[in-house]
Design a protein around this nucleic acid. Sequence first.
RNA 1: GCGCCAGUAGCUCAGCUGGAUAGAGCACCGGACUUCUAAUCCGACGGUCGCAGGUUCGAAUCCUGCCUGGCGCGCCA
Length: 549
Amino acid sequence: MTPETLAEKVLSATRAAFADLGLDATALPAETAVERPRNPEHGDYASTIALQVAKKAGTNPRALAQEIAARLAELDGVAKTDIAGPGFLNITLDAAASGGIAGQIVIAGTAYGYNESMKGAHVNLEFVSANPTGPVHAGGTRWAAVGDALARVMRASGAKVTSEYYFNDAGSQIDRFANSLLARAKGEPVPEDGYGGAYVDEIATEVLNRHPDALESENPREVFRVAGVELMFNEIKTTLADFGTHFDVYFNEKELHDQGELDAALERLSKLGHVFEAEGATWLRTTEFGDDKDRVLKKSDGSWTYFAADCAYYLNKRERGFGKLVLMLGADHHGYVGRMQAISRAFGDEPGTLEILIGQMVNLLQEGRPVRMSKRMGTVVTLEDVVEAIGVDATRYALTRYSADSPIDLDIDLWTKHGNENPVYYVQYAHSRTHGVLRNAAERGVAKGDGYDASLLTHPRESDLLKALAEFPATVATAAELREPHRVARYAEELAGAYHRFQHDCRVLPVGDEPQTPTGRARLWLVDATRVVLANALDLLGVSAPERM
RNA sequence: GCGCCAGUAGCUCAGCUGGAUAGAGCACCGGACUUCUAAUCCGACGGUCGCAGGUUCGAAUCCUGCCUGGCGCGCCA
């Protein structure tokens, strides 16, 4: 029995109790969940439903819990029910009922964990979106990992997700980039407002390799701009691909200009009555929608602002049919939240149509000291640098195991350790151990068989492991709903721990020439189920699941 | 000044969107290798959940105020 089905049974038992007691059924929630009590004396699962609804229904929580418990106790699979404290409902399952999950998991395979909590949602998920003026830096790297994991987690929860990267290869940032390339190609220092760093030299050299006559051409700056942007962007794309992050759409701001979409957006906003002229410029009255100041769409010199393109891009996404737009920004851009939300409201969309996730900064530590980052000095830490230092798996894992709300101190020394202090190894090693057992079983001709007796899985380590395995779909659903993929990583660590403890205490394969026992066979199913779930969890994070380490 | 985020064990962080005695890893101390890979496991130590109020059967979690730290507040992109 899964926690989900048990929760449904708790709810229907409560409904039945309400009917029999003549209570008002409108006090009942649409759905409920059971939790795993920390204290094993409190059973396998606990429900607080009686505490939650008793007051609303005008009854005593303990008495109500008693009624619910009596009905639950009659169900197949429920071994025991108890009432504790003010009205906690503690439920103990039969070993056979909780052990069945292992077989279900093995059969479901890679599909286990899939849930439909976001079914029907059509999501546009935008992240990274760095302009091609330099390599992806540490902050962008965080989103490359978290955004990709979030896309996977949402898809595993039934949502249709398009991952998208928005960039501009024509703005003044790019001009400064082009000027920097040109200066370095001439052997001059980069301009005051230019970009420093070794990559600028490398790109400049590469442009010269491809266009040996670039400096003598009619418009050298233009040659460097076009070729430099292309080289830079290819490098970014390659780096992201090597990192395992895939984008469905690379969207260029230029397209909005070329298609006249800024004018269209302006017209739409004007018709809606949110645009006004002042000081020679055209403004959007974003303060009407909670922004702290109104924003300029068209400057007094007639040119568009970047904000105007944001409006057009928003409209473009909505017209492509997305009902939910998720935008991931670094904390250094959180000042945009107010105006971006105002765009959404100005177009008449419901609150919640646009969701903006803010990720805090990433600091790199080495030998306990912060690695100072400065674009000007060229000491910016890039995605490639981090990957080179600690590898793709460790980087992705390190960036996805923390809540986006909290700043990360990424300790290079810790994440390069091949030991249990490094969480990614802890999880991957658990996975590889399952393969080890299954490999040994195969070599010795010990078969898992077509079925097993779930009631034999009664060891505390076995029931802990089973309960952990059963939680996976709910973890994925919660991670998707809350946009918090770090929950999957934390879950994987918990599951890995439960497995390590199980394998330590519970012998799976026969010792020496002893025959295979029914318990051993049931355990083999449990090992296989753990293999499936660890692999699925790591896959959601984009981290590899090695069979040997 | 205003806004966003954070403050939980010595350190790094979880805490299942209000539940039972607040957890994990690291560090430190003490144990388990004749192994299914010890990249593991077990035990011990360690807390005024920033502070003060409030909401209720019940608060680390929700509300208000304050303190501390990070980030941000352009007709820049």
